[in-house]
Simulated scan of single mutants.
Amino acid sequence: MRIQWLFADKQNSIKEALRLAGLEDKIAVLPINCLGACKHAQTVAIRGTNSAAFLFGPVKFPEDIPDIISTCRIYLETPDGWIEGSRDCGNLRHCLIGRIPD
């Protein structure tokens, strides 16, 4: 699974949060130049191999990092990445731009 983050300068904080959550070996954080969501100040994509993909924005940084971690945990627990109940995703449930099935 990987998180694609539009702002490369923020990735160290996300990597540290993943490390503290014990997820650093399961999730790669990759900077990306464009996620096609310019009207949203900061966006984040979560995707896995043969799994659904999600695009969230605007994401508040660093306030939403705990919700990003929670969403990653939920994502990893599903067989296909499809998150049905979004309550545990915190603020990210209000930031969903799109989800793409595998």
Rank of each mutant, 00 (worst) to 15 (best):
K26C: 12
V44N: 09
Q42M: 13
I83R: 02
T43L: 09
K60F: 00
G98E: 10
E84Y: 14
L76S: 02
P62T: 03
G81D: 04
T43P: 11
G57A: 02
F54D: 01
I32S: 13
D64G: 01
K26W: 07
T71S: 15
W5C: 10
I3L: 15
E16C: 07
H94Q: 07
I74F: 05
V44L: 15
E63Y: 06
L92I: 05
L18D: 05
L18W: 03
C89W: 00
S13M: 00
R2A: 03
C95P: 06
G85K: 15
I83C: 02
G22P: 06
E24C: 08
R73H: 10
K15I: 07
C72E: 08
T43C: 15
C95G: 01
N91Q: 05
S51K: 15
K26V: 02
L35M: 11
C34D: 14
I74R: 09
R73D: 07
R87C: 06
G81S: 05
S70L: 03
S13Y: 00
A52I: 08
I3D: 07
W5M: 13
L35T: 02
L92D: 03
G22D: 03
G22S: 05
D25V: 01
D25M: 06
W5L: 14
I83N: 02
F56D: 01
A37W: 04
L35C: 04
L23R: 02
R19S: 10
M1R: 03
N91D: 02
S86V: 14
G36V: 10
E84A: 15
C38W: 01
L30M: 09
L92W: 04
L76F: 01
F56P: 03
S70F: 01
Y75V: 05
I27W: 07
R73T: 11
G22C: 04
E24N: 13
R73Q: 14
G81I: 04
A28C: 13
T71E: 13
P79A: 03
I97T: 08
A37M: 08
E63H: 10
P79C: 00
A21K: 02
I69S: 09
P58I: 00
R2W: 06
I69F: 07
A53G: 14
L96G: 00
D88F: 01
